[in-house]
Design a binder for these strands. Sequence first.
DNA 1: GGCAATTACATCGCATGCGATTAGATCGTA
DNA 2: TACGATCTAATCGCATGCGATGTAATTGCC
Lengths: 155, 155
Amino acid sequence: MSVNNLSPEEIAEQMTLDHMICFAAYSASQAMNRFYRPILDEMGLTYPQFIVMMVLWEEGQTTMKALSDRLMLESNTLTPLLKKLEAAGLVTRARNKDDERLLDIAATEKGMALKRRGCMAPVELAAATGETLEGVIELQQRLANLRNRLNAKAS
Amino acid sequence: MSVNNLSPEEIAEQMTLDHMICFAAYSASQAMNRFYRPILDEMGLTYPQFIVMMVLWEEGQTTMKALSDRLMLESNTLTPLLKKLEAAGLVTRARNKDDERLLDIAATEKGMALKRRGCMAPVELAAATGETLEGVIELQQRLANLRNRLNAKAS
DNA sequence: GGCAATTACATCGCATGCGATTAGATCGTA
DNA sequence: TACGATCTAATCGCATGCGATGTAATTGCC
């Protein structure tokens, strides 16, 4: 019998952890984080610091606001993280001249030097999944679409 | 040109945050967490506490070891979390009689009473994604497979 | 039986995430 | 042009995750 023939209550009745997409995403995200750890340890980065650097490797510079929108993380998460990257000499933080509310963030030369190694990590991850590259890309797009629809609903 | 015609280095060259499955999983997981928050707030649960309760709603009782394997979380994460659930009167914690190293964990009646509401949450999430139920299930399975292959590679 | 190795859980420290709140800058409008 | 509303970061508190380490119980091998 197809799940389409069941009421929400009947589906809830049979719901287990192993059928929940939230747990699949949660545990897969953590598994990928564990995969990255040895690589990121070599670079002295945590995973959230890594995705901040990914944006800077792509953009060169940005602002706290743009970074917050892109990563879907609030300033209360990013502020201490960016201060650590600044202390490590990988980024600079400075108030924007035109709008003092904005914080300009830029990668230093030392920060940009990590790009080559850092950008290989996702490629190595894709290889380790045993999926074809096309399969990984399709999965990535469907996950991003699902996330975007959820975020749109929340706003 | 297909990605199959590119070397890993060439792929890394073009790598951006929006092509990374790790970020799709990471941000989707957090988006789902945000979706759950109002529901879980009503029940007085956080998301990790919720997935612990999901196991207990399914199994009735378990051990720290089994929970750790199932959720892929270590005791250093689960111990304080379970103590909070115990303080809230939702679970009991006791040493196993046959093997004192093991910690038995069981849902109380108060804990089991949350099952009906809790099991609806993933159904509501699936509905909010705009996907068909079959689509969500397929995505869930592919993510779980990817995670399992990554975890197998790590061990 | 004796004892080193293993197992299971707990403790500690550090780095996120995020709700709630605050402070300062800018905007919009009377 | 005042001035309240809005916007952007930062600060604080709490709850994870997890590496490193400690401790007690059990296992395995002689």
